[in-house]
Computed example of a mutant assay.
Amino acid sequence: MTRIEKPTELITDGPVSQSKAGFALDENVDGDLACTDHHHRILAIQDAMAVLSGKWKILVLGSLSFKGTQRFTELLKSVGGIRAKMLSKELQELEANQLVTRTVKQTKPLTVEYAITPYGRTLEQLIIEIVNWGTAHRERIMKG
């Protein structure tokens, strides 16, 4: 699991303001302040990428977000192309980062269910934006 290396560099400021294009605006572009702000934004991107990086994590979160709670084998089929060992690893990391919960049901045989947490749901808008961008990108590329 990837963790923030220097807890003293956690961002305590509020969210970044956005332009119409969605890019961050620097309202105060004074030398050091702008550099510090830029540094904090880059750290925030690094933290997010550390938690969400890889080929599968966003797909797993998307599947749990769109389809709801799933058993391991359902999730394996839903994501498609991922191997069981990799899915297990990704789920462990997502659980360690409090984005997914793992529930063991006392059935015979035991069943394990995975669900997105309320904290994980904070990523839904980001996932929807990725879906929208991916759809538009596919259409653009297919047109030539």
Rank of each mutant, 00 (worst) to 15 (best):
M1Q: 03
I4M: 04
E9T: 03
L10G: 02
I11K: 13
T12I: 06
T12N: 05
P15D: 04
V16A: 06
Q18E: 09
Q18N: 03
S19D: 14
K20Q: 07
F23S: 13
F23Y: 14
A24S: 14
A24I: 14
A24F: 06
L25G: 04
G31R: 11
D32W: 08
L33Q: 15
A34S: 15
C35P: 01
D37C: 05
H38E: 07
H39D: 07
H40G: 04
H40F: 10
R41F: 06
R41Y: 07
I42C: 13
I42L: 15
L43E: 10
A44F: 03
Q46P: 00
D47L: 06
M49N: 12
A50E: 10
V51Y: 00
L52I: 02
K55H: 11
K57C: 00
I58R: 08
L61V: 03
S65M: 14
S65H: 11
S65K: 07
F66P: 00
T69M: 15
T69Q: 15
T69S: 15
Q70R: 10
Q70N: 09
Q70I: 05
R71M: 11
T73S: 14
T73Q: 10
L75C: 07
L75H: 06
L76D: 07
K77Q: 14
S78F: 03
G81V: 10
G81Y: 12
I82Q: 11
R83H: 14
R83W: 05
A84P: 07
L87K: 07
E90C: 12
E90P: 02
L91R: 03
E93A: 08
L94D: 00
L94H: 02
E95D: 07
A96P: 01
A96R: 02
N97Y: 00
N97A: 10
Q98R: 06
Q98T: 06
L99G: 01
L99Y: 01
T101W: 02
R102S: 04
V104Y: 01
V104W: 00
K105Y: 09
Q106M: 08
Q106G: 04
T107E: 12
T107M: 03
K108Q: 14
P109K: 10
L110N: 11
T111E: 15
V112G: 04
E113T: 13
Y114S: 03
I116Y: 01
T117D: 10
Y119E: 13
R121A: 09
T122V: 05
Q125C: 05
E129A: 11
V131N: 09
G134R: 08
R138E: 06
I141Y: 01
I141R: 05
M142T: 14
K143H: 08
G144T: 11
G144H: 09
